Simulated assay, not measured.
Amino acid sequence: MNPLAAARAYSAIQGTEMPSAPAAGVGQAGFAEMLTSVLGDMTQTSKAAETQMASAVQGQGSLIDVVTAVASAEASLETVMAVRDQVIQAYQEIMRMPI
């Protein structure tokens, strides 16, 4: 999956709008805050999916709610994995640069 497409899918699920270009003056703290936010959202989405599954097993939840929650958790996990892959790739490219 294309990382940009994954980020846009995640933004659509979360109901937020993805910026088209980085804001001026955003430094390391902004990137760190964004990563912390995305990881927190992924954790919350996964916990919500687990809660929906548990309620469905107990006969209190709807199968549609479970499928929706699991799909949302999967999309957020794919986004995090795509960002991780891009960061690793960028790091490897930097390490290959001649000094």
Rank of each mutant, 00 (worst) to 15 (best):
N2V: 05
P3Y: 09
P3C: 04
P3A: 02
P3Q: 09
P3F: 00
P3T: 08
L4V: 15
L4G: 08
L4Q: 14
L4E: 14
L4K: 15
A5Y: 03
A5D: 14
A5L: 15
A5F: 03
A6T: 06
A7N: 09
A7G: 07
A9V: 10
Y10Q: 12
Y10M: 13
S11A: 13
S11T: 06
A12R: 10
A12K: 08
A12C: 04
I13W: 11
I13Q: 07
Q14I: 00
Q14C: 00
Q14K: 03
Q14P: 00
T16M: 13
E17N: 02
M18H: 05
S20E: 15
S20F: 14
S20V: 15
A21Y: 10
A21H: 11
A21P: 00
A23H: 06
A24P: 12
A24I: 14
A24N: 05
V26Y: 01
V26T: 15
V26A: 03
G27M: 07
G27T: 15
A29V: 15
A29D: 13
A29Y: 04
F31K: 09
F31Y: 14
F31Q: 09
A32K: 11
M34E: 04
T36Q: 12
T36A: 04
T36N: 08
S37K: 13
S37H: 10
V38A: 10
L39F: 04
G40R: 09
G40W: 05
D41H: 08
D41A: 12
M42E: 01
T43G: 03
T43Y: 13
Q44Y: 08
Q44L: 11
Q44E: 12
T45K: 06
K47Y: 05
K47F: 00
A48H: 08
A48S: 07
A48K: 04
A49K: 06
A49G: 05
A49L: 06
A49C: 06
E50K: 06
E50T: 11
E50S: 07
E50P: 01
T51L: 13
T51F: 10
T51Y: 03
M53G: 00
M53P: 01
M53T: 02
M53E: 02
M53R: 07
M53V: 06
A54S: 11
A54D: 01
S55T: 02
S55A: 12
S55L: 10
S55M: 13
A56T: 15
V57R: 06
V57W: 05
Q58T: 07
G59I: 05
G59P: 05
Q60E: 07
G61D: 04
G61Y: 00
L63Y: 02
I64D: 08
I64G: 10
I64A: 12
D65A: 14
V66M: 02
V67P: 02
T68S: 06
T68W: 01
V70D: 02
V70Q: 14
A71R: 07
A71Y: 08
A73T: 02
A73D: 03
E74V: 02
A75H: 07
S76G: 01
S76I: 10
S76H: 12
S76L: 14
S76N: 15
T79Q: 10
T79N: 05
M81A: 12
V83F: 11
R84C: 01
D85H: 11
V87Y: 12
I88P: 02
I88S: 00
I88E: 03
I88C: 01
A90G: 02
A90K: 09
Y91G: 02
Y91R: 05
Q92A: 08
E93F: 11
I94G: 00
I94P: 01
R96W: 05
M97T: 15
I99L: 08
I99P: 09
